[in-house]
Structure formats: C-alpha cells, structure tokens
Design a protein around this nucleic acid. Structure first.
Length: 179
DNA sequence: CCCTGATTCGC
DNA sequence: GCGAATCAGG
C-alpha cells in the first residue's frame, strides 16, 4: 500500500479526531501503526495533546513542531445522541426479566463513557476490546465501545454489568465502573 | 501484559 | 519517503 492522497487525507482526519495510530492503521488497512506514526511525523502533525515529559534516550528533544499547518482542528461533537435517562429503566426491565445475550444498543450513558477517540469500528475490535454496539447500525455514527475487556469476554466491565446484571445492581455500579 | 506515541536508521 | 525496530511511558 502506498500513501495516496485519499489515504493521507483520511489519515489526517482520523488523527485529528483523536484516534490512535493503531486504530487508524486498522481503518486504512495495509499499514501498521508504525507506518501511521511515521507518516504523521513526516506530515508534521505530531504532538497531539502531549506534555513533553522526556524524550527517548538522551537525544535531542527537537519536537517543537510549528503546528500552524494543522488547520483541521475539528471540534469534537460532545454527545451525539442525548436522550432521557429514563430509557435506561425501560431496557433494564427487559433485561431483568430475561438476561440478555445479545444486548440492544443503549444510547445515552454509553455515549458519555466512550469519548470520540475511543470509538471502535468493526475493524478495530480485537479479542480484548468491548464489542458493545453503540448507536444505530444503519447510521453513520454507529460504533463499538472499544474499551478494554478481558480476553474472550465480549464486553468491558461496565457493559458486562449492563448486559448481565439486574437493573438495581446496574444503577449502583454505573458510576463506579467506567468502561 | 496490554496499550500509547516518538525516534532512529536501513532501505 | 517509508516503516520496522526500538524506546519510553501509561
């Protein structure tokens, strides 16, 4: 694979969206995260919300990149789908009656828990990423939770609770278990 | 151990 | 220019 203008464009977009290099590599396909990082540096759009703590070895820290080139400072839409918290109760009642194996999308609380940078697509899911669907699969903004989960476990700690625990427990654990 | 980005250097 | 290897950190 080569860096066509389209792929570079997508790279810039995803990078400014806050996706990690590995996620971008998965989206692009045919490249590793190293390739993505290397390209990002060559494009001069590195240094994304990073506090200069210490460079590797004792080399020069010449990372003062004049980032004025990066005009694509997109504002991140905070909450894609704000909805009433009451909807949780509705889904909760169903789940309580019958423990769900295939959970239904639960829009509101998750949207807050999963920042845009943490979104996962079908390509970025691994053995240990949460596969909880978020949003409408037929819509553009559908994505997966993507938070870390134990190997072989489909969901992160939070979504395991959402999927398998009674509503009463969920309400209690919600604030404690992010993720 | 998992992950992240940063840097170097042979190609 | 490219990206694997490596480093440093969370």
């Amino acid at each position: 694979m080569s860096w066509t203008s389209e792929r570079v464009d997508l790279l810039k977009k995803l990078w400014s969206d806050g996706l990690s290099a590995s996620q971008i590599a998965a989206e692009l396909g045919g490249v590793t995260r190293n390739a993505v990082i290397g390209k990002v540096h060559r494009l001069g759009l590195s240094g994304r919300a990073k506090a200069p703590s210490s460079a590797q070895k004792s080399r020069k820290v010449a990372k003062s990149a004049p980032t004025q080139d990066n005009t694509a400072v997109e504002e991140a839409p905070s909450a894609p789908t704000p909805s009433a918290p009451q909807s949780i109760g509705a889904t909760a009642l169903k789940a309580e009656a019958a423990p769900v194996a295939a959970p239904e999308p639960e829009a509101q609380p998750v949207a807050e828990l999963v920042p845009i940078a943490k979104r996962a697509t079908i390509l970025t899911l691994t053995e240990r990423t949460c596969k909880w669907p978020i949003g409408d699969p037929t819509k553009e903004d559908f994505y997966f939770c993507g938070h870390p989960s134990n190997p072989g476990v489909p969901y992160c700690a939070y979504h395991c609770r959402v999927a398998y625990q009674p509503a009463s427990d969920r309400r209690r654990d919600k604030s404690a278990a992010n993720g």
